[in-house]
Write a protein that binds this DNA or RNA. Structure first.
Lengths: 334, 334
DNA sequence: CTGAAAGCGCTTACAG
DNA sequence: CTGAAAGCGCTTACAG
């Protein structure tokens, strides 16, 4: 910018005015400056600008895994809102590693992002307190933060599962197996709670042998299926799966079980938490409790921008609804 | 940092030394400084650091759509490599809008990213020339850049299609329909070229009525299917689909066509360019020519870091292989 | 082992 | 309408 000023024979400040379209510059002077900009190939350094202005017009997004369609759809929606405000977005995946999440979050804060959207991992987000205190806006998504008071956007997990279980109960199922993710994960805990509460409210007993909770591995799910469907004296006639990764693994294992002729006479009814691509094209189509990841992302981004715009708002907790989409698998009778 | 220095009673430079773990600081002094850092909740401003040092340790990634599994998997792989080098990554989606891509790319450059990975849209990337000249490393992915000489990572589209078509020819198919994306898109053009070349090399004539190229809409694909499969005097016995979005739409339309009883007696054989989730769980499983998006991303990131590390390398063009995965749909006989 | 000065490339606050 | 000075928060280059 200095070089441009020298080349145009004006002061630095005048170049700044032209570059930023500030009013009150003589058109002829402005033209001279633009000529110099062109000739030198000048491009404003937004890093320097940022340093002086005190905000960076950038936000960070930290998810479990950007390659997972749920998170990538969410992130894309955040991008969209950010673009509207002229903000750029950093992204980072941390899987289920709390330490990696922390490193990413602090790295984003060191770059002085104005805000951060984060799917919290681990049981303590207190490390973000100084950052938030220093002015970084934070919105927690999909799971609430622990030990820290901040905006969050959650899904009505309990209500979603309730819809699915009631759907199965209404069709006469009484032996409904539940296969969920590791119980440390907030959503996994909420969802299995929805299962228990719905059965109890309907006057049924909980049979622990019909519940399996673990990170989804083929062997673990295979074992759970064999226990619930084959070796039980009164096998499950229906399954509820706690997320789409589990659903897909269950479908693969069911197909193998059927092919292996191990005595699975009828495919159990199935309702899945989470919608997924091609669920409608399978035979039968998979009935799901759909979340809306784009809406989750949009809502989080809107909360974030509201908070960045200032004011002393008290933390907000939004809970988004789910939708049951019947496609066949959840309508099978016992 | 100034405040820390004052609180610790040392010079700014000493604080800088402690913060950056530079050697040659008296342990007692260092301890005093660390105490002040703790007390004041000091966190280094990486923006200022960046301004002084001349590089930002960040890169930008621009894809068509982060919500698309192909691009999100690619981006996740880039993230992984970046993390290894201690770099942060900006992401942006531009769909097929060249102007939005340009804005994003220039915004990243204004933030002085050290490098940029980009799936080019539009027919001219010359606008990036000054940026590259100014030192931004650039790697083009999935499609080559136009009017600019830079590293690129492509896929062997022609070879991939050849494998698929030969697979169908070997099973006796002679009427093979091709449904591809808009021909302006580089990969779409390459793939249909692979189709033509393979048929010609095998001594067959090209029948234009068996080729449909357009952005995938349900109606367009429905019309193409009706033309190729129903109203033709000698209908296609096999289809090759140019990408997974098209494949999925074709599958939906085939299912509807079958259900509607419009005279589709047998489902044609099908080979798809691009693998996709659940392709193995459909009935029949979908035979695909698989790309490896994670490998594409990793390769691009490695090229980028190689280039950022300097040297005066001439532009490299990598072409990654594809893999045919037979799953049933491509093995059906005419 | 420690520090004073200059400078990265901008914007802010002010003066003319 | 234009500009000179100070400063954002660091690191570089140098001196002691």
């Amino acid at each position: 910018m200095n070089d441009v000023a020298a080349a145009a024979g004006v002061a630095l400040k005048t170049v700044s005015r032209v570059v930023n379209d500030e009013p009150g510059v003589n058109p002829a002077t402005a033209e001279k400056v633009r000529g110099a900009i062109e000739a030198l190939g000048f491009r404003r350094n937004d890093g320097a600008r940022t340093l002086r202005r005190g905000h960076t017009s950038s936000i960070g997004v930290i998810v479990r895994d950007l390659a997972d369609p749920f998170y990538s759809t969410l992130t894309r929606a955040v991008e969209e809102v950010a673009l509207t405000h002229g903000f750029l977005v950093f992204t980072g995946s941390c899987d289920e590693s709390a330490s990696r999440q922390r490193e990413l979050a602090l790295a984003f804060c060191a770059r002085r992002v104005d805000g951060i959207i984060i799917v919290p991992v681990g049981d303590d987000q207190r490390y973000l307190e100084p950052e938030i205190h220093a002015g970084v806006a934070a919105v927690f998504v999909d799971r609430p933060a622990t030990n820290i008071d901040a905006d969050s956007v959650l899904v009505d997990n309990v209500g979603g599962v309730r819809k699915g279980i009631e759907h199965l109960l209404a069709r006469g199922h009484r032996r409904i197996g539940y296969i969920g993710d590791a119980p440390e994960i907030f959503t996994a805990g909420e969802r299995v709670r929805g299962y228990r509460e719905t059965l109890t409210a309907a006057g049924h007993l909980i049979d622990p042998s019909l519940i399996a909770m673990a990170s989804p591995s083929r062997q673990g799910i295979r074992a759970a299926l064999e226990r619930m469907l084959l070796s039980s004296p009164s096998p499950a006639t229906a399954l509820f799966t706690g997320n789409s990764r589990i659903t897909v693994t269950v479908l693969r294992e069911l197909a193998e079980l059927e092919a292996s002729g191990q005595g699975l006479e009828r495919r159990p009814a199935l309702v899945s938490f989470d919608d997924f691509d091609l669920a409608d094209l399978l035979t039968p189509g998979v009935t799901v409790i759909a979340q809306d990841p784009a809406r989750i992302g949009r809502t989080a981004a809107e909360l974030l921008f509201r908070r960045m715009e200032g004011g002393n708002l008290s933390p907000v907790r939004r809970e988004l609804p789910t939708r049951l989409i019947p496609r066949g698998s959840g309508e099978a009778l016992p």
